[in-house]
């Protein structure tokens, strides 16, 4: 390579790089100004002391974090993590099956089916939730129909079952979309080949579709699990508010208790936990992709 061609080559490589940096600036600036900067305030406040009227004094203390060691908080956290996991698993299973169904339809119908999945979410969240309360409550249609058959007193409002149902409803699209996206890029001939080689339905999924759609599944897991932690209306309206989630805890601390420092401390702990889970998923993704490349290499 002569010096001139190298110069041209370098010039080409560098030019888009500088241009791409410029393109990144608005996004970075927005997140830094509207996301990171406020988070610094939250981090600072988590070490502050609340005054009697809900303001924040200048003090510096670790007390807010020390208080979190109280078993009452770990109980709420564990319950939230448990419910979040349950919701994630349910959403993933149903999201996986639904995505598989959509992908197996003719290409020109798939978009319409996806549209059908999101349209319900253009109605107000509270309106939808109250509709569920009506449907599942004792005055609703299910209770009415059961009543005709002599089964009286049907009502699952409030209950944890209703909470799981409400969470599933809210997070199903967030699970379906990423899984669908990665399933769509799987070569259909792979499935056919596996079937021709005598693999069972379960075998095809376990060996072909499931591993190949794992990036979408992991993405869906994050997008379901993390936001479940912040949910606070569903547990109150559908679940009776007896088992608060971390989201309820933070809202109570920020509003009713006017204890921002404590609320900030809970948020910071949650943030660290979520970042850790994100890192774990990232690691899992990396490992699965390296594994796949190594298998490919061995096969080759």
């Amino acid at each position: 390579m002569t010096a001139t061609t190298r110069a041209i080559h370098l010039g080409r490589q560098e030019k888009p790089k500088r241009g791409s940096l410029l393109l990144l600036i608005p996004g970075i600036a927005s997140v830094v100004l509207l996301g990171v900067l406020p988070l610094f305030i939250v981090a600072r406040n988590s070490f502050a002391v609340a005054d009697d009227y809900g303001g924040i004094t200048d003090g510096l203390t670790l007390e807010n974090y020390a208080k979190l060691l109280d078993p009452v908080y770990s109980k709420t956290l564990l319950f939230s993590l448990g419910l979040g996991l349950l919701n994630t698993v349910v959403c993933l299973v149903i999201g996986y099956l639904t995505s598989y169904y959509i992908v197996s339809r003719p290409t020109n119908r798939q978009g319409f089916l996806l549209l059908l999945v999101i349209i319900p979410f253009w109605t107000d969240f509270l309106v939808r939730t109250f509709a569920w309360i009506t449907i599942l409550g004792s005055g609703g249609p299910i209770a009415g129909i059961l009543g005709i058959f002599g089964i009286a007193g049907f009502s699952v409002i409030p209950s944890n079952l209703a909470v799981v149902l409400g969470l599933l409803y809210s997070f199903l699209p967030t699970a379906i979309f990423p899984i669908y996206a990665s399933m769509r890029s799987i070569d259909p001939s792979l499935k056919e080949a596996a079937t021709d080689l005598g693999a069972s339905w379960w075998g095809v999924h376990r060996r072909v579709i499931l591993p190949l759609s794992s990036p979408g599944i992991l993405g869906a897991a994050l997008l379901t699990f993390i936001p479940t932690m912040g949910v606070f209306v569903i547990p109150v309206l559908l679940g009776g508010g007896k088992d608060p989630l971390v989201g309820n805890l933070i809202v109570t601390l920020y509003t009713e208790f006017r204890n921002q420092p404590m609320g900030a401390a809970v948020s910071m702990v949650l943030l660290v936990l979520m970042l850790a889970s994100m890192a774990l998923v990232g690691l899992a993704l990396k490992r699965s992709s390296t594994k796949r490349t190594t298998t490919k290499k061995t096969e080759a």
Binding site: G139, S155, I157, K242
Partner: peptide, 14 residues
Amino acid sequence: SGYNSTNYGELVAS
């Protein structure tokens, strides 16, 4: 049954 300060009236009515 629960803690509810929004639609408790309807819950009692039903």
